[in-house]
Design a protein around this nucleic acid. Structure first.
Length: 432
RNA sequence: GCGGGCGUCGCCAAGUGGUUAAGGCAGUGGCUUGUGGCGCCGCUAUUCGGGGGUUCGAAUCCCCUCGCUCGCCCCA
């Protein structure tokens, strides 16, 4: 019992679970590929300041959830808690902002030091998409649509899309002024958490879960009323387009999102079947971030999907495993060598060909093939080795005698025909 | 950081103070050393998350501790 254990909040993904992961990833990557979005990979480790300045000191992520440590050179390093800041940094640093606008995606582990619970880990995985250099409201619409379509392609039902707008800088500071005044008057009626936020991050008070504060907020000034004509029009247009595209959404004026850098569009996709951590996708526009981080002013919008939550939601259809096509039963010195050689040839056919390495009795090897639900088997023993041939047989689970065929080891044409006829032309679509 | 629940084999579990810690699944060996299912027969926890205490006696009672889990805060 003194064995090593993984750290709290981290998990091992085992072969059986990874079938689902891989299927999900495959569907996602196809969708991204078709939308002509390119991958970017950035380090998992960054200097701490990237996040404190990029994400914002007042946010929960930065103030209490970061995995931060000093390296051997006494530099403060942080395991990335999200992907956007790193991508922005990489674009600035590599001079990519001078190039045409970029549509990018990334996928990988993120780290947040929190108490784990259902749908929440300390090391978790995100798929992120960032459109950098795009200002048009149609880029907002495409980002939202893309997120929606990915979830739909995975067969996930019962999703709720919530949207809101935060306006531009001017809108926001106008609102903030009025809001702060109102907050000062009402400080004593607010819950404790909200009181603490007045100085740090007043906007976050808007999405408090405290029931009393919520009620109180109904009489507070609304950000929506402070939108400039331009911002308002932008927002209305986005809603209009979503309607045309038949993407169902709900407006949520209190949707603010946790990170500082958002402007204009903010959105979130949730599912009731996830438990209390219901958000599977969150995103929005961040026109200020890149400038704030030292790059030329560049509008951008993006989203992130939590892969663990996605996996929880994805249905049975992505759990399907591809069974072994051919299990090669072999025994005897010469036979084993021939079998090894044959297995390599078979793999040129895009088949799953598994060579039995046990050297156990034929009976055992057959049982193994049966257990694996192998679609067919090949047998090479001493008898076959002498004649330079092998036996191949379809292998139904119900143990009815299946006809078998003997093929010479050199007869590639006969083998190819057999495989075509019995295995290759019967593929289901998901496992191609 | 704060609450609730839970910790008996790889997994699911019975056992709630008397001593050989059920059972099922999985694994493995055999019946059957050149042929699959089913079946049958073996094997697989000196030990109940860890430590201390109470007792003649503890998986069972008490204390501490660790871990897991769900929730709060917040987010993916």
């Amino acid at each position: 019992m003194n064995n090593f254990k993984n750290l709290r909040g981290t998990v091992d993904l085992l072969p059986d679970q990874l079938i689902k992961w891989q299927n999900v990833e495959k569907i996602i990557l196809e969708q991204l590929f078709r939308a002509s979005i390119k991958e970017i990979r950035t380090p998992i480790l960054e200097m701490t300041e990237l996040f404190t300045r990029g994400i914002g000191e007042g946010t929960d992520v930065v103030s209490k959830e970061m995995y931060t440590f000093l390296d051997r050179g006494e530099r403060s390093c942080t395991l990335r808690p999200e992907g956007t800041a790193s991508v922005a940094r990489a674009l600035i640093q590599n001079g990519i902002l001078n190039k045409p606008p970029q549509k990018l995606w990334y996928m990988g582990p993120m780290f947040r030091y929190e108490r784990p619970q259902a749908g929440r880990q300390r090391q978790f995985h995100q798929l992120g998409v960032e459109f950098v250099g795009f200002e048009s409201l149609r880029s907002d619409v495409e980002i939202i649509t893309l997120a929606w379509d990915i979830l739909e392609k995975l067969g996930i039902k019962e999703l709720n899309l919530e949207i809101n707008t935060l306006g531009d800088n001017t809108d926001r500071s106008n609102f903030q002024k009025a809001f702060l005044e109102w907050l000062k008057v009402n400080t004593n009626s607010l819950d404790l958490d909200s009181q603490k936020r007045i100085d740090k991050n007043p906007l976050r008070i808007l999405d408090t879960k405290n029931v009393q504060t919520k009620k109180l907020l109904e009489n507070a000034p609304r950000l929506f009323d402070f939108l400039s004509e331009k911002s308002l029009k932008r927002y209305l247009n986005i809603k209009e387009q979503l309607k045309i595209l038949k993407i169902p959404y709900v407006e949520n004026f209190n949707l603010v999102r946790g990170l500082d850098y958002y402007t204009h569009t903010a959105f979130e996709i949730t599912s009731g079947s996830l438990g209390s951590q219901a958000t599977v996708c969150g995103g929005g526009r961040y026109d200020n971030l890149i400038n704030q981080m030292g790059g030329t002013e560049t509008p951008a919008i993006g989203f992130a999907i939590g892969l663990e939550r996605l996996i929880l939601l994805a249905g049975k259809e992505v759990e399907e495993n591809r069974a072994t096509d051919i299990y090669i039963v072999n025994k005897g010195l010469q036979a084993e060598t021939l079998a090894m050689d044959l297995s390599r040839k078979l793999r040129n056919y895009d088949l799953i060909a598994e060579l039995d390495l046990s050297g156990a009795s034929f009976s055992k090897q057959f049982k193994k093939a049966n257990k694996l639900k192998s679609k067919s088997i090949i047998v090479i023993g001493d008898d076959e080795a002498i004649k330079n041939e092998f036996i191949i047989r379809l292998f139904n689970n119900n143990n009815s005698e299946n006809k078998e065929e003997t093929i010479s080891l050199d007869d590639h044409i006969k083998l190819g025909n057999w495989l075509d006829e019995n295995l290759l032309l019967k593929r289901s679509s998901i496992n191609k």
